[in-house]
Each structure stands twice: as C-alpha cells, then as structure tokens.
Design a protein around this nucleic acid. Structure first.
Length: 803
RNA sequence: GCAGGUGUGGCGGAAUUGGCAGACGCACAGGACUCAAAAUCCUGCGAAGUAACAUUCGUGUGGGUUCGACCCCCACCACCUGCACCA
C-alpha cells in the first residue's frame, strides 16, 4: 500500500477540527498547566510564509509532547490584523481593509490547518475585532489615568512615503522600515507612552526570566543604561548655568570646551549676548533640515560653530572655556549639552583636532607611560593633572568627584537611559481609535469605560491628509461628540494606535478570549499566567518584546495581572532563506509557497523538513533536494507496517536502541535540537529495515515519539496496527536509564595521542585487565620505543606515551 | 566603532562539552530489480597515497596549554545579525 499523504492528512485534520481535539481545558483544578505561545501572524495578502511554520512546528512539537506528559496545554493562535499593508491596499483598490483582512484571515486559517498544528481553534483572536480592541482601548485609558500616556509636541520621525509618524524603532538607516521612503523630522502633537518610567525594572527583571542570552543582551543594549553625573557649569558674567551629563566626571579637569545641541535653549536665552548670532542661527537651521540619519552618519566630518560672546566656567579649574554648538551632540539624550574632554573621548578628540581646541590629558596608564590620545581605557587609567583627584584610579576618582560635586551642590550622580518614550500616535485609518476626546474647557478627557469599544467608523476614502493628518480627520460626524466630563461639544482624537498596541497584550486575551466583563477573568489569569514558553523572531526582541513587557508590568502594578513578567521563557528561531541563501522576496523570485510544499509532499514532510534543516536558532536556506530526503524517510516509516511482527515488549536486539532513543529525543525536544531528533528517527528506521522486523511494542513507541513531528502519518499507522485510541491520548514514553548503558564497549587506544586501534572491554572492566588488552594490541607497533607514561580514562580512552 | 554570533567533506549539518572528527540527510558513483525508465533496495563516498593494506595530512589562519584540542587560552582573517556621534 502506497503512502497516500493527501488522504491521510485530510482525514485526521477533519477529525481534529470536528472534535476540537486540542482545545485547552477550562478546568482550572488541574494544576499542571503549560502555556506555549508563538507570535501571531499578520494576515498579509501573500499568505503564509514558510518562515511561520518553523516557529509554529517547533512549539507544536513541544505542545503535543506536553499533552502526552499530562499537562493541560494552552497553545493558541490569532491574528494581528491592524496595519499598513491592508490600508495601503485599500488606498490603491478602494477595498475596505475589513474585507481584505477577513479574506486573508480565512486564507491563513486554511493554510495553518493544512499543516496540522494543534492550535486551540476555539480561542482565535483578531486584534481588529471591536470585542478585542475594546480592551486595547481600556488599557490605554488606564495608562492615561495613571499618568503614563501624555500628549507632547515633539519632533517625530515622519515617513514621506506612508505619510505617517514612526517610532524610532520603525526607522531603519534613515528610511521607513515598511516602505523604504526617506524619513524626515516633523513637529507634531502626539500621544506618548512613558516607557522610560519602567526602564530600570525592564532591565532588572531580565534576571528573573529564562530568555536566550542574546535576547537579554539586545534588550539591555536597547534600554542603554549608563551611570554618570550631571554637572552645572556657570556661564561667565551671568546667572545662567549649563547643565551637562557625563559618564566620566573623573575627567572634569580635562574639560576644555562645551558643546550644546543645535536645539539647545541656551542659545535663545543668551541670544542678546552672542556676538555671532547670525552664524549660530544659520548652523541651527542647517541642522534642522538634516534628518536624524544624516546627522548621525558615521565617519562624517564633525561640524560646529563657536558661540562667541559667552563662556562657561569649569567648576573645578575655574577656567573660562568656550561654548560650541555642534550636531554631534543630540538634544534628545542627557541634557542636550556636554563638557568636552578631548583627551579621553574619541568624538571630542576629533572635534578638538579639527577646530584646534586645547587637549589636556588628565588620565594616564597605571605605569604612567606615554599613550596616544584619545586614551579611553577606564580599566587601567589613573588620574593625573587633576588636583585632588590626582593619583586615583578612574573608579575611585569618579566616586570622589561625585561626592565633591554633591557637597558643593554643583552636580550629582545621575543614571541615564537610551530608551525613549514610545510615540503612540499614528495618522492612519486602520488601527485602534485612541479613546480620547478634546474639550475646550476640560482638555483631554478619556471616554467613559462603559462606552468602549470606540469603534472605527466606516469610511470610503483612506488617503492620509496632506499634512499627515489621519484619514479620520475628515470625518466630522464622527469627530464631533460631547465631552464625557462636562457634556459640552468636544472633538475626538483622530489618530489611531500603532500596530504594536494589539500585540502588547494578546497573550492575556487567549486565556479567556470570550470574556465581556474584563480582558480576562481573574481565575483564568491566575491559572494560565505566565506564558511558559514564547518563541518568535529576533526582529521582535527590541520592539514587541519590550513593549509587551512594559504593558504587562503596568497591568501588574494596577492589579490586573498576577505576575511581574509576561513570558517565563523566550526562544528564537532562525530565518528561512531562499535556496540562494538570500532573504525570500518577490523581487528576487526565491519565494517558496507553503501550499505547494504541502501539496507535493504533504504536511508531515513539510514539518519534518523544517525541523531537519539545521539548528533551530540559526538561519537556514531552503533546499528542494533535502525535502525529498524527508519524504523518503516518512515513506520508509510508512512501510515499516510491512515488516511488523508481534511482541508486547521490546526485543532483545532493539531494547537498548529504544531506551536510548526515548532519552535522546525527549532531551532534544526540550533543547530545541529537532534536527538531531530526526537523525535519531532515521537511524532507528535504518536499523528496523536492516533487521527486516519491528515488533508492536517498538512500533508503538516509535510512533508515539514521532507523533509530535509528523502527527498525521503516525495516527494513521497507529490505527492500522489496531490501536483503539489515538496517539494524542497516549502517555509520553519513558526510558530505563539502566537499559541505555552498554555493558560491552569499544574504546580507542592511542599512542602519543594518535589513534592506533580500538579494543573491546566490559563496562568498568578493571584497569589491569584493560592494560593487558592494550599491550597485547599495540606492543608490536612500538618499534622498540620506550613507554614513558600510560593514561587510562575509565571507559573512555587509553593513551600510551612513548619516546 | 561597540555588542552578539558563525566558520567542520561537493552541500545541509553531527560530535555525550577536552577523549575514535564527519552521525543523519542531500548530491554523486557502482550494483540489484526492470524490455526500459522512475521509484525502491544493497554497496561505496574528506584529501593525498597504495594493486590492496600501511602511512601521512585534515575542523577559517598563526601561535599556546595538554598524554590528548573542532572544543580551552592569546593574536588575527572572513562572513552574518543587532546597535550606532547615547557624552
């Protein structure tokens, strides 16, 4: 009988669908729960990408294993359906995003089901469903009420293509992450979320979660904590002060000039004393026209203008030093002004060299040798030419100078973060409306919670406004409302939320997706929290992961969720590349469509191949040849039924292999080493074929182990061999450690570290007996050389050193 | 520039973490089956070398530690991924 995967897969998928086989239990008395989460897809018009199933299959394997281990498993799926592509498509074709989204979700659902994932389809969520975004809006209102959402006019990244404000995270190399158009700076009034208030906790609590180390590193870098000091510099002959932030207060004696960012307020304040105001203004204007990217481009010559007419006073040396304006100082970090220490900072050094500014060395290596400047080593440095700091190590000097500054009230210890507040407004239609109303008398007022959801009005015209206004801004009948506070006429916010909003809390909704009273019930949250294992792409480590941790911590603070962290464990999969090793894209013509693969080889082969491709966390190139090998493997598995013999226990010749395999595969799955699990399966099949027999007990265990990887074929074979219940209801096989150990082993014998031969010994054979065997084997190969030393590592290796 | 990662046959990759390098798969070659092809099955497959053994070389490069190194240490090269004038 041939392996008819089409028939088999359809049969089991229909059965699972009809019976809801994999729905998580709502019985919370079962204390053993496991919550596995994959990043829910954006239902794009292109359909499922072959990259999605890599992550989904991996967690599906773990979820299926957990069920067999007796856990109540929650393994949900949903759709992150707000976003630009549907809206851009609507602009082009005038098809409402709601229709496109619905169609795409249908398509995705069919595709996902055709691969046999054990998702709980009774819990599907969709971020564009008013019943869902009602709670997204509710969270926003809570943020607002707790002072974490505020409106600010600030320069934002404005995409000239999408005509929309972008978060810093969405700007890549000066262009829009989505459409590739240039991004310029624009002043706009935007809703902001105060993620910076949580910076320290987002950093600290990384110690309590099990994330891949590289994910933690990226989060830490993104938060970018640094310790230093703020120092006040007096402006000579004035009451004004210039506040700077520095991580090297120990180098204060070497500060030979100051630099302020072009946007710094000092220039305005002291405008009447500046003798070259025109020149300074011209520089400011030029800087304003440059994008952040242009300003930040490396290896570019530093530019700047001295602000003449005013001087700053170094608080330690009392020397008057010049003040410059230069765009290498950013207004958005620290205080927007720096003290420049050219001898010990490469940027200041470049600038000082270009403009002939004095360079004073104040730190030297411990041995006081001459070094090339700038000398930036903080580990070995010792203060010199620094008054009361001279002779101290960098660390001690920092400590001492901060004490001094604090005592004299001219400065204080200060921690800074690179993390910025989250720009939360989007001038777009296809997003959650921000549930805020502006009243002339009351200012910004949140909607009453009982009036949620604030639904997105149906519009016919999706073009953004000329000035980057939201398409909703043209909808006067929707905009005009009454103030929830005083009842007077008022206007709605027309901006919508970014795509990150809905995905910042979706894992909570899965716990109780049909709840009308709350985002999820207390019981469900208590029972299912936290997510036990979350797998997703590295591209989401700095944005989505950080945002959702922030929202979660906030919800924890206001008593909504029971845990500090949303995800106990986070892993990450490597990207699937085209067969040419490049990222799959339509323009490169190297896109593989999952439907074609499922059609030609079947879902089981597709799953096995994606797991066999290579190490899970590393990128892998698609190979049509390799996938045939996986099909061949399953075909061999199918034909094992032809050599099936009776037997209720493992046969003598296979007992060891079976026990070893259970151990290896069980461990491999936990370590996400799926590729070596599959090698183990292949080795087993080769052995059964070589022996021309497999007994029932062996086959049953084999099928159970393979079931999470290839669920359809294994269920079918299980039925064929007369099982009375499906594998998904079996217990995960256990092994007997004693039966994984060989009592007779082969060990290598080396002479001077080079392999000469191998000998067979009993496990734990006594050393003298082993020695005797070794000498019998190699004594005639020594060419009369003298044995100097013999090393025997028990049961491992025997090495003879000769001369 | 900083941080992290990777480098092993023709290719994808294994290696119990310091102990027989190349498991498993692909490709390739030979054979069986077939009128023939495909599929399937069997055998071989790092390089040099030999009739065949033997032997030598071999995990990006150069050095080191060790009885023994893909694995540890030092220096370097190449590629990938983040971040990037963050004071």
């Amino acid at each position: 009988m041939a392996y008819n995967f089409k028939e088999i897969e359809k049969k089991w998928q229909d059965k699972w669908d009809k019976e809801g086989t994999f729905n998580a239990s709502n019985d919370f008395t079962n204390s053993k729960k496991w919550y596995g989460l994959i990043e829910f897809p954006y239902p794009s018009g292109q359909g499922l990408h072959v990259g999605h199933p890599r992550s989904y299959t991996a967690l599906d394997i773990i979820a299926r294993k957990r069920r067999m281990q007796g856990y109540n498993v929650l393994f949900p799926i949903g759709f992150d359906a707000f976003g630009l592509p549907a809206e851009n498509y609507a602009i082009k074709t005038n098809v409402h995003p709601k229709i496109t989204t619905e169609k795409n979700i249908k398509h995705f659902t069919d595709q996902l089901k055709s691969i046999g994932f054990s998702f709980d389809w009774s819990r599907v969520i969709n971020t564009t469903d008013p019943e869902y975004y009602k709670w997204t809006q509710w969270i926003f209102i809570q943020l607002y009420k707790h002072g974490l959402a505020y409106k600010a006019t600030m320069p934002i990244n404005f995409c000239t293509g999408c005509k929309v404000g972008l978060a810093n995270e969405e700007v890549v190399n000066g262009v829009c992450e989505r459409c590739g158009s240039p991004v310029v700076q624009k002043e706009k009034s935007e809703w902001m979320l105060k993620i910076t208030k949580y910076a320290q906790r987002l950093l600290d609590d990384l110690d309590d979660v099990d994330y891949l180390e590289k994910i933690k590193v990226q989060q830490r870098n993104w938060i970018g904590r640094s310790e230093g000091a703020e120092v006040k510099f007096k402006i000579a002959n004035s009451d004004e002060e210039l506040l700077v932030y520095t991580t090297r207060p120990d180098t204060l004696f070497g500060a030979t000039y100051m630099v302020v960012a072009p946007e710094h307020k000092l220039i305005e304040k002291l405008a009447n004393r500046i003798t070259n105001l025109d020149e300074v203004k011209e520089y400011q204007n030029k800087a304003a026209l440059k994008s952040d990217f242009e300003r930040g481009e490396m290896n570019k010559d530093k530019t700047g203008v001295e602000i003449k007419g005013i001087k700053a006073v170094n608080p330690l040396t009392n020397e008057e030093i010049p003040i410059w304006v230069a765009d290498y100082v950013l207004s958005s970090y620290g205080t927007g002004a720096i003290m420049a220490v050219p001898a010990h900072d490469t940027r200041d050094f470049d600038f000082a060299t270009k403009f002939n500014l004095p360079i004073v060395q104040v730190v030297a290596p411990t041995d006081n040798s001459n070094v090339e400047l700038p000398f930036t080593d903080v580990e070995t440095g010792v203060s010199i030419n620094s008054g009361f700091l001279t002779g101290l190590s960098v660390k001690d000097a920092k400590q001492k100078v901060i004490e001094y500054l604090e005592e004299k009230k001219i400065g204080e210890k200060k921690v800074n973060y690179k993390l910025r507040d989250w720009v939360f407004s989007r001038q777009r239609y296809w997003g959650e409306p921000i549930p805020m109303v502006y009243c002339e008398d009351c200012g910004w007022v949140p909607l009453d919670e009982k009036d949620l959801p604030l639904t997105l009005p149906d519009v016919k015209d999706f073009l953004p406004g000329e000035n980057g206004e939201s398409p909703l801004a043209r909808h006067t009948e929707w905009i005009n409302t009454t103030c929830p506070h005083c009842g007077k006429p008022a206007k709605r916010e027309t901006d919508t939320m970014p795509q990150w909003a809905g995905s910042s809390w979706y894992y909570l909704r899965y716990m109780d997706p049909h709840n009308h009273e709350a985002l999820a019930s207390k019981e469900a949250l208590e029972y299912w929290s936290p997510v036990d294992w979350y797998n997703g792409g590295m591209e989401h480590t700095t944005l989505h992961l950080l945002y959702s941790r922030f929202w979660h911590k906030f919800l924890y603070d206001i008593g909504v969720v029971p845990t500090k962290e949303p995800y106990a464990k986070r892993t990450s999969h490597g990207m699937i590349l085209g067969s040419n090793g490049e990222k799959m894209s339509k323009s490169k013509g190297n896109v593989i469509n999952p439907d074609d693969i499922v059609n030609e080889f079947g879902a089981d082969t597709f799953r096995v191949y994606e797991m066999f491709m290579g190490p899970f966390d590393q990128p892998a190139s698609w190979s049509m040849d390799s996938i045939r090998g996986c099909f061949k493997f399953l075909d061999r598995v199918w034909h094992l039924q032809d050599i099936l013999v009776d037997g209720d226990t493992y046969s003598k010749e296979c007992e060891k292999m079976m026990n070893k395999a259970i151990k290896k595969i069980s461990n491999d799955i936990e370590d996400m080493k799926f590729n070596t699990s599959i090698s183990t399966f292949m080795t087993m099949v080769n052995e059964f074929v070589r022996l021309k027999r497999i007994n029932k007990a062996e086959f049953k265990t084999f099928l159970t182990l393979l079931n999470p990887f290839a669920p359809h074929i294994t269920e079918e074979l299980n039925e064929i061999i007369g099982a009375d219940k499906p594998i998904s209801s079996y217990e995960w096989p256990v092994y007997d450690e004693a039966k994984t150990i060989d009592e007779e082993i082969e060990i290598p014998v080396q002479v001077n570290g080079k392999l000469k031969c191998t000998i067979t010994i009993a496990l734990n054979e006594d050393d003298d007996s082993v020695k005797e065997k070794v000498h019998k084997a190699i004594d005639d190969k020594l060419d009369g050389k003298v044995i100097k030393k013999e090393i025997y590592v028990k049961n491992k290796i025997y090495n003879v050193v000769v001369k």
